[in-house]
């Protein structure tokens, strides 16, 4: 009962039991099973090996597997907890759990800190902030003079760097986000509450894709 895909899942590298993942995340067992449907779709879109490769994340985000982007790289790196170049099912569910509407705000703040700490020094540094600003301007085809960019970066950095030591630490980041809650808006995906409707894993899939 309820084991119709157990044979297939046993063969999937990195597969973890939904009951285990549900116990560690805000998801129910049914939601984890629904996420497995999404995971299968994403992890077979370029290389059908049951693992999400960077190209597959890029394809899902941009509809283009070759389009690279600083932020997509950082998202991939944070999801790839084992740092082995692929996202396994357990990593996918645990990472998406942070984006659940019921996930602790602390977890969302921590995730964004790690996202913006590009060089993983334990601090968000001014150069990293400028690099990210330049990346979003490039991505958006927005043109701002270097003077304007410098002014924006300086102002934001001085607002966040309460200790004035030239770097933003996790404590300062938490304080800054509490004053600017919109900074973690992207960290909540309402879709995750309806994931069983979008991917009804309880309906036996025919595995036949429309093209």
């Amino acid at each position: 009962m309820g084991c119709y895909h157990s044979k297939r899942t046993k063969e999937t590298p990195g597969y973890e039991e939904p009951t285990v993942l549900a116990a560690e995340t805000p998801f129910t067992v049914s939601e984890v099973e629904a996420l497995y449907e999404l995971f299968k779709k994403l992890s077979s879109s370029v290389i059908d090996d049951g693992l999400i490769h960077k190209e597959e994340l890029q394809l899902a985000l941009f509809r283009n597997k070759n389009r690279r982007n600083l932020f997509a790289d950082r998202i991939f790196d944070l999801f790839d907890v084992k740092r082995n170049g692929v996202i396994e099912f357990g990593e996918f569910v645990r990472s998406l759990g942070v984006f659940h509407p019921n996930a602790p705000v602390e977890d969302k703040i921590h995730f964004t800190f790690r996202l913006y700490d590009l060089r993983q020094t334990g601090f968000i540094e001014r150069e990293e902030l400028k690099e990210m600003v330049l990346a979003i301007l490039h991505e958006s085809d927005l043109l701002l003079s270097d003077d304007v960019v410098e002014t924006i970066v300086d102002k934001t950095f001085s607002d966040a760097d309460l200790k004035g030591d030239g770097k933003i630490d996790p404590e300062e980041w938490k304080e800054f986000v509490s004053k600017n809650p919109s900074l973690i808006k992207n960290m909540t995906l309402p879709y995750l509450k309806d994931i069983t409707l979008a991917f009804p894993s309880f309906v036996l899939s025919t595995e036949v894709e429309d093209s």
Binding site: L38, L42, A60, L61, F62, N69, L70, F71, A72, I75, L96, F99, L115, Y116, L129, M132, V133, A135, I136, E139, S140, T151, I152, V153, K155, T156, F157, D159, A160, F176, N180, S182, L183, K185, N186, L189, Y191, I195, A198
Partner: peptide, 28 residues
């Protein structure tokens, strides 16, 4: 005052990146 009174927060600007909106993962 010569200073710009309402500069956009750099992190808000960064948050506008489409890559940081993972809702694309759920699109059919």
């Amino acid at each position: 005052s010569p200073k710009s009174p309402n500069l956009i927060n750099a992190f808000q600007l960064i948050g506008m990146s489409s890559c940081l909106d993972l809702s694309g993962l759920f699109e059919k």
